[in-house]
Every structure is written in structure tokens, then in C-alpha cells.
């Protein structure tokens, strides 16, 4: 663990990733203290300062009702990160368990479970989440449900492939020979060897969940106003291009910075831990 961390620090690219991710996480956690205008996360109107280009004290400019974009981006990070963590906390255990059962047990279990997984994988991710979001009401909780529903199959696929190759290994055979139960073999023998790959994918996915969630809200199917959200900020601002460029460019870059950071770390982890793709 410490070795992994020190390798991360030595590579300039992964160091950049660590810096970006820490910046994003810290600004989300301490948004109340960093944001110059904490109240602007809600439905505040300040027409005296509306649609201002970046200038002090509004370093990213203000939106069409005079709210500070910088403050809103910080709060939007907070919501994106919560969504990402919750989605992964639900999707990963489900996906991993199904993948283990399908990969280790084989036979009919494998056929049925993997066809169900295929069904979810053959609806384009965004389309599935969009339809669910539209049919339910667009709230934060439903957003989490919709994104979780499209996310677990990717972990099933990953763990399924890992479990299929691991179950031929000597240590699994040894455990089976001394009479270990199937559950023990799956969760105590095979699973620990899948952890590096799962962790790597989770790091990358934290960024991608933010990306998908912002795509949903870009289409108007995400968190509803006045809650700040990077995707809907870009969508609202795009109508005022090119004059009010800051309305779209800064929220867009904010997404880029967060996802890029997670990608840099995930990439480095993949190389260090030798994880499967």
C-alpha cells in the first residue's frame, strides 16, 4: 500500500492526478468555507451582477441571475462526488457477486446470469439511464438508481472473466480438494485476487460516473434546479454562446479536471497493480 503510494508520487502524471483529485475532493468537502458566495448554491437572485465575465470577486463570472459560478461549481462537485460514491457502493458489490457466481459455478447459472448481464450491456449506457430517469421523477435519488442500474454489469463482466481464469489455478483446486465450500472458494479464495482489478476500475469509474451524471443533467434528465449541477450549467450556458462563453467553458472544464484526475490515478494504478482491463 505504502509502496503503491510512493510510486504514484514519483510519476509526474500520477502526481498531477493526485493533485487534481485532492483539489476536487477538498473543494467539495470544504465548499462552505472556500466558496466566496455559499448562498449562491440555491435559488438566489442578484440582478445587479448578472451575466458578468470573470472578474474579481467573481473569478469564473456570474450566471444569468447573478450567481457566482465558482461557488456553484464547488457545490456541484459535492453532489457529483456523493452520487459517484453511492453508485459505486451499490453497483460494485452487486456486479462482483453476480460475476463470481457466473464465472465460478458455470453451467446454467452462468448462462442465465450472463444473458441478463448482456441485456443490460446491450442498451447504450446513457439511453438506459435516460429512460429510467425520465420514467421516474428526476431527483438525486432516482439519478443514483438509474446510474447504478447501468453500472453493475461492467463489474459482472470484469469479475466473470477473472473468475473463469482464476478457477483453473492451483490454489483454487487445492481449496476444493480439502473440501472448502463453494462460497468459501468464491469469496475467500478467488475474490481477493480480483481486488486489484476491481479497485483500479473503481478509481477510473468515479470519474466516469461524474461524466454520465453530468450528461444526464445536460439533457435535462438529472438533478433539477436550483441544485447546482455541472451538466445543466453547460446546457443552460450553451444557449448564450459565444458571448457569455464563461457560462459553459468553466463548468465544462470542471468536469474535465475531475474526470482527468481520476483517470490519471486509475491509469497509474493499473500499471502498478497489473490489473486487467
Amino acid at each position: 500500500m505504502r509502496r503503491t503510494f510512493s510510486i504514484l508520487l514519483r510519476n509526474p502524471l500520477s502526481l498531477l492526478g493526485l493533485i487534481l483529485v485532492s483539489a476536487v475532493v477538498l473543494s467539495a468537502v470544504f465548499a462552505d468555507f472556500i466558496a466566496p458566495f455559499p448562498l449562491h448554491r440555491g435559488a438566489v437572485v442578484d440582478f445587479a451582477n448578472f451575466n458578468k465575465p470573470p472578474e474579481w470577486p467573481y473569478i469564473f463570472g456570474t450566471d444569468l441571475v447573478g450567481r457566482d459560478l465558482f461557488s456553484r461549481i464547488l457545490y456541484a462537485y459535492r453532489i457529483s462526488l456523493i452520487l459517484g460514491v453511492v453508485v459505486l457502493a451499490i453497483a460494485v458489490p452487486i456486479g462482483v457477486a453476480i460475476g463470481l457466481f457466473a464465472g465460478y459455478l458455470g453451467g446454467w447459472t452462468e448462462y442465465v446470469l450472463m444473458r441478463i448481464t448482456d441485456v443490460f450491456l446491450s442498451i447504450p449506457p446513457l439511453v438506459l439511464a435516460m429512460s429510467m430517469m425520465g420514467l421516474l421523477e428526476p431527483t438525486l435519488t432516482n439519478g443514483m438508481i438509474a446510474v447504478t442500474a447501468m453500472w453493475w454489469p461492467w463489474y459482472t463482466r470484469l469479475v466473470y472473466n477473472l473468475a473463469r481464469s482464476e478457477k483453473e489455478e492451483g490454489y483454487v483446486l487445492a481449496a476444493e480438494v480439502i473440501g472448502a465450500s463453494k462460497l468459501h472458494v468464491m469469496f475467500r479464495e478467488i475474490l481477493p485476487n480480483c481486488v486489484p482489478s476491481i479497485l483500479t476500475k473503481m478509481t477510473l469509474d468515479l470519474g466516469f460516473v461524474i461524466l454520465i451524471a453530468s450528461s444526464l443533467s445536460f439533457l435535462g434528465l438529472g438533478v433539477q434546479p436550483p441544485t447546482p449541477d455541472l451538466g445543466s450549467m453547460v446546457a443552460d450556458g450553451a444557449k448564450y454562446l459565444p458571448d457569455s462563453w464563461w457560462l459553459t467553458v468553466f463548468p465544462g472544464l470542471a468536469i474535465l479536471v475531475a474526470v482527468f484526475g481520476f483517470n490519471l490515478i486509475g491509469d497509474a494504478l493499473r500499471e502498478i497493480l497489473g490489473a486487467e482491463q
Partner: peptide, 11 residues
Amino acid sequence: VSAPSFVWAVI
């Protein structure tokens, strides 16, 4: 891969 396609589209 680090930005959604709508951000690239806008840029």
C-alpha cells in the same frame, strides 16, 4: 476520454 462528448462539442 476525460470529458463528456457534449463538453467537446461545445469547445
